[in-house]
Amino acid sequence: MLPVREKVEHTALRIKFTKTGKLQYISHLDLHRTFCRLLVRCGIPVWYSEGFTPHPRLQFATPLSVGSESLCEYMDVYVIGNADTVDLDVMRWKLRETDIDGLEIKEVYLPSTKFSTITHSDYTVRIKTDGASQALAAKCNEALHVSPLVILKRTKSGEKDVDISTQIKSVDVSFDGEAIVIKACLAADSAGFLKPDYLINVLKDRCGILSGDVLKEEYSILRTAVLVGDEEFH
Protein backbone atom coordinates (compact mmCIF):
# COMPACT_ATOMS: atom_id res chain seq x y z
CA MET A 1 0.00 0.00 0.00
CA LEU A 2 3.02 2.29 -0.16
CA PRO A 3 1.82 5.26 -2.17
CA VAL A 4 3.94 6.06 -5.20
CA ARG A 5 5.54 9.44 -4.73
CA GLU A 6 7.43 11.57 -7.17
CA LYS A 7 11.10 12.02 -6.46
CA VAL A 8 11.63 15.67 -5.73
CA GLU A 9 15.01 17.37 -5.97
CA HIS A 10 16.10 18.77 -2.63
CA THR A 11 19.05 20.33 -0.90
CA ALA A 12 20.09 21.12 2.64
CA LEU A 13 19.70 24.65 3.95
CA ARG A 14 21.54 25.70 7.09
CA ILE A 15 20.02 28.14 9.55
CA LYS A 16 21.93 29.71 12.41
CA PHE A 17 19.63 30.97 15.13
CA THR A 18 19.36 31.95 18.77
CA LYS A 19 17.42 30.18 21.52
CA THR A 20 17.06 32.60 24.37
CA GLY A 21 14.58 33.81 26.99
CA LYS A 22 11.53 31.62 27.52
CA LEU A 23 12.64 29.32 24.73
CA GLN A 24 15.35 27.97 27.02
CA TYR A 25 12.65 25.96 28.78
CA ILE A 26 11.70 23.88 25.79
CA SER A 27 13.36 20.62 24.90
CA HIS A 28 15.05 19.49 21.74
CA LEU A 29 11.91 17.71 20.52
CA ASP A 30 9.78 20.75 21.27
CA LEU A 31 12.17 22.90 19.26
CA HIS A 32 11.93 20.45 16.38
CA ARG A 33 8.14 20.77 16.31
CA THR A 34 8.33 24.53 16.73
CA PHE A 35 10.68 24.83 13.77
CA CYS A 36 8.58 22.63 11.50
CA ARG A 37 5.63 24.94 12.08
CA LEU A 38 7.69 28.09 11.77
CA LEU A 39 9.03 27.02 8.38
CA VAL A 40 5.51 26.34 7.13
CA ARG A 41 4.28 29.71 8.39
CA CYS A 42 7.15 31.47 6.70
CA GLY A 43 6.36 29.73 3.41
CA ILE A 44 9.71 27.92 3.10
CA PRO A 45 9.40 25.17 0.43
CA VAL A 46 10.23 22.38 2.85
CA TRP A 47 11.02 19.02 1.29
CA TYR A 48 9.08 16.07 2.70
CA SER A 49 10.64 12.65 2.99
CA GLU A 50 9.28 10.20 0.45
CA GLY A 51 8.39 7.28 2.72
CA PHE A 52 5.13 6.01 4.10
CA THR A 53 4.69 9.00 6.39
CA PRO A 54 6.23 12.01 4.66
CA HIS A 55 7.77 14.46 7.09
CA PRO A 56 10.23 17.36 7.02
CA ARG A 57 13.86 16.43 7.71
CA LEU A 58 15.40 18.66 10.33
CA GLN A 59 18.78 18.12 11.93
CA PHE A 60 20.24 20.10 14.80
CA ALA A 61 23.97 20.55 15.38
CA THR A 62 24.56 20.01 19.09
CA PRO A 63 22.19 19.33 21.94
CA LEU A 64 21.38 22.13 24.36
CA SER A 65 19.94 21.24 27.73
CA VAL A 66 16.66 22.65 28.97
CA GLY A 67 17.44 25.76 30.99
CA SER A 68 20.37 26.84 28.79
CA GLU A 69 20.32 29.68 26.27
CA SER A 70 22.31 29.98 23.08
CA LEU A 71 23.37 32.61 20.59
CA CYS A 72 24.56 30.08 18.05
CA GLU A 73 22.35 27.10 17.26
CA TYR A 74 22.58 25.46 13.85
CA MET A 75 19.94 23.50 12.03
CA ASP A 76 19.83 21.88 8.59
CA VAL A 77 16.55 21.46 6.78
CA TYR A 78 15.97 20.01 3.34
CA VAL A 79 14.21 22.35 0.95
CA ILE A 80 12.96 21.77 -2.56
CA GLY A 81 15.46 22.70 -5.25
CA ASN A 82 19.21 22.40 -5.75
CA ALA A 83 22.22 24.49 -4.86
CA ASP A 84 21.76 26.55 -8.01
CA THR A 85 18.02 27.12 -7.84
CA VAL A 86 17.57 27.84 -4.14
CA ASP A 87 17.36 31.60 -3.80
CA LEU A 88 18.96 32.38 -0.47
CA ASP A 89 17.83 36.01 -0.52
CA VAL A 90 14.23 34.91 -0.82
CA MET A 91 14.73 32.42 2.00
CA ARG A 92 16.29 35.08 4.19
CA TRP A 93 13.48 37.47 3.36
CA LYS A 94 10.86 34.89 4.25
CA LEU A 95 12.59 34.09 7.53
CA ARG A 96 13.53 37.70 8.27
CA GLU A 97 11.11 38.10 11.08
CA THR A 98 10.20 35.08 13.05
CA ASP A 99 7.18 35.44 15.26
CA ILE A 100 8.74 33.50 18.11
CA ASP A 101 10.21 35.31 21.11
CA GLY A 102 13.79 34.26 21.71
CA LEU A 103 14.29 32.73 18.27
CA GLU A 104 16.20 35.04 15.99
CA ILE A 105 17.50 33.89 12.61
CA LYS A 106 21.14 34.95 12.31
CA GLU A 107 22.28 33.36 9.06
CA VAL A 108 20.80 31.32 6.21
CA TYR A 109 23.19 29.55 3.83
CA LEU A 110 24.03 26.37 1.96
CA PRO A 111 26.21 24.22 4.18
CA SER A 112 29.61 22.96 3.15
CA THR A 113 30.50 21.31 6.46
CA LYS A 114 29.12 18.52 8.58
CA PHE A 115 27.88 18.80 12.15
CA SER A 116 30.15 15.88 13.03
CA THR A 117 33.21 18.13 12.67
CA ILE A 118 32.20 20.15 15.74
CA THR A 119 34.62 19.68 18.65
CA HIS A 120 33.84 22.29 21.32
CA SER A 121 31.38 24.90 22.52
CA ASP A 122 32.04 28.14 24.36
CA TYR A 123 29.80 29.01 27.28
CA THR A 124 29.31 31.93 29.60
CA VAL A 125 27.71 31.02 32.92
CA ARG A 126 26.60 33.82 35.23
CA ILE A 127 25.83 32.95 38.82
CA LYS A 128 24.20 35.43 41.15
CA THR A 129 24.87 33.86 44.51
CA ASP A 130 25.10 34.95 48.11
CA GLY A 131 28.61 36.12 48.94
CA ALA A 132 29.66 36.59 45.32
CA SER A 133 33.06 38.26 45.43
CA GLN A 134 36.52 38.30 43.93
CA ALA A 135 37.63 35.85 46.58
CA LEU A 136 34.80 33.41 45.88
CA ALA A 137 35.54 33.64 42.16
CA ALA A 138 39.15 32.76 42.81
CA LYS A 139 38.10 29.81 44.95
CA CYS A 140 35.75 28.62 42.19
CA ASN A 141 38.49 29.03 39.60
CA GLU A 142 40.77 26.83 41.65
CA ALA A 143 38.06 24.20 42.10
CA LEU A 144 37.61 23.88 38.33
CA HIS A 145 41.32 23.63 37.61
CA VAL A 146 41.80 20.44 39.60
CA SER A 147 42.91 17.40 37.64
CA PRO A 148 41.49 14.84 37.71
CA LEU A 149 38.11 16.48 38.36
CA VAL A 150 35.91 13.57 39.34
CA ILE A 151 32.15 14.02 39.47
CA LEU A 152 29.15 11.75 39.77
CA LYS A 153 27.41 11.58 36.40
CA ARG A 154 23.87 10.32 36.10
CA THR A 155 23.20 8.29 33.01
CA LYS A 156 20.37 6.06 31.90
CA SER A 157 22.28 3.02 33.14
CA GLY A 158 22.91 4.48 36.59
CA GLU A 159 25.42 6.71 38.35
CA LYS A 160 29.16 6.59 37.88
CA ASP A 161 32.27 8.61 38.71
CA VAL A 162 33.74 10.38 35.71
CA ASP A 163 36.83 12.58 35.32
CA ILE A 164 35.65 15.66 33.40
CA SER A 165 38.96 17.53 33.43
CA THR A 166 39.86 16.11 30.01
CA GLN A 167 36.64 17.57 28.59
CA ILE A 168 37.41 21.09 29.75
CA LYS A 169 39.57 22.78 27.14
CA SER A 170 39.73 26.02 29.05
CA VAL A 171 37.92 27.60 31.96
CA ASP A 172 38.17 30.89 33.75
CA VAL A 173 36.12 32.19 36.66
CA SER A 174 35.88 35.87 37.47
CA PHE A 175 33.70 38.31 39.39
CA ASP A 176 32.04 41.13 37.46
CA GLY A 177 30.89 43.16 40.43
CA GLU A 178 27.52 41.41 40.60
CA ALA A 179 27.91 37.78 39.66
CA ILE A 180 30.39 34.95 39.42
CA VAL A 181 31.13 34.51 35.72
CA ILE A 182 32.47 31.29 34.25
CA LYS A 183 33.84 31.33 30.71
CA ALA A 184 34.46 27.81 29.55
CA CYS A 185 35.28 25.92 26.41
CA LEU A 186 33.89 22.41 26.74
CA ALA A 187 34.05 19.27 24.64
CA ALA A 188 31.15 18.80 22.23
CA ASP A 189 32.13 15.90 20.00
CA SER A 190 30.99 12.32 19.84
CA ALA A 191 33.83 11.17 22.13
CA GLY A 192 32.62 13.36 24.96
CA PHE A 193 30.03 16.02 25.53
CA LEU A 194 30.20 18.07 28.67
CA LYS A 195 27.18 20.07 29.83
CA PRO A 196 28.12 23.29 31.63
CA ASP A 197 25.58 22.30 34.27
CA TYR A 198 28.25 19.96 35.67
CA LEU A 199 30.59 22.87 36.35
CA ILE A 200 27.83 24.51 38.40
CA ASN A 201 27.33 21.27 40.30
CA VAL A 202 31.04 21.11 41.13
CA LEU A 203 30.93 24.65 42.50
CA LYS A 204 27.75 23.91 44.45
CA ASP A 205 29.43 20.95 46.12
CA ARG A 206 32.90 22.35 46.65
CA CYS A 207 32.44 26.12 46.99
CA GLY A 208 28.95 26.28 48.47
CA ILE A 209 27.45 28.51 45.78
CA LEU A 210 23.68 28.67 45.21
CA SER A 211 22.91 27.36 48.67
CA GLY A 212 20.90 30.38 49.84
CA ASP A 213 17.45 31.70 49.01
CA VAL A 214 16.24 30.20 45.73
CA LEU A 215 14.20 33.30 44.98
CA LYS A 216 17.21 35.62 45.22
CA GLU A 217 19.92 33.46 43.68
CA GLU A 218 19.90 32.84 39.97
CA TYR A 219 22.14 31.46 37.28
CA SER A 220 22.12 31.51 33.52
CA ILE A 221 23.94 29.43 30.97
CA LEU A 222 24.65 30.89 27.55
CA ARG A 223 26.33 29.11 24.66
CA THR A 224 28.31 31.76 22.80
CA ALA A 225 30.12 29.83 20.09
CA VAL A 226 30.30 26.43 18.46
CA LEU A 227 33.82 25.50 17.39
CA VAL A 228 35.81 23.22 15.14
CA GLY A 229 39.18 23.21 16.91
CA ASP A 230 39.88 26.90 17.39
CA GLU A 231 37.75 28.07 14.48
CA GLU A 232 34.10 29.02 14.68
CA PHE A 233 31.87 26.42 13.03
CA HIS A 234 30.16 27.48 9.81
Binding site: K22, Y25, S27, T34, V66, I100, G102, V214, L215, S220
Partner: peptide
Protein backbone atom coordinates in the same frame (compact mmCIF):
# COMPACT_ATOMS: atom_id res chain seq x y z
CA UNK B 1 8.61 33.56 37.27
CA UNK B 2 11.96 33.07 39.01
CA UNK B 3 14.35 31.21 36.72
CA UNK B 4 15.98 29.08 39.41
CA UNK B 5 12.55 27.82 40.38
CA UNK B 6 11.69 27.04 36.75
CA UNK B 7 14.95 25.17 36.32
CA UNK B 8 14.18 23.00 39.33
CA UNK B 9 10.80 21.58 38.28
CA UNK B 10 9.66 18.99 35.76
CA UNK B 11 8.70 20.41 32.36
CA UNK B 12 9.33 24.11 33.02
CA UNK B 13 7.66 24.85 29.67
CA UNK B 14 4.37 24.40 31.53
CA UNK B 15 4.97 27.60 33.46
CA UNK B 16 7.14 29.80 31.26
CA UNK B 17 4.48 31.02 28.82
CA UNK B 18 5.58 33.00 25.79
CA UNK B 19 4.04 30.58 23.30
CA UNK B 20 3.37 31.49 19.71
CA UNK B 21 -0.10 33.00 19.47
Amino acid sequence: MNSTLLKSVLKPGRYSGGEHG
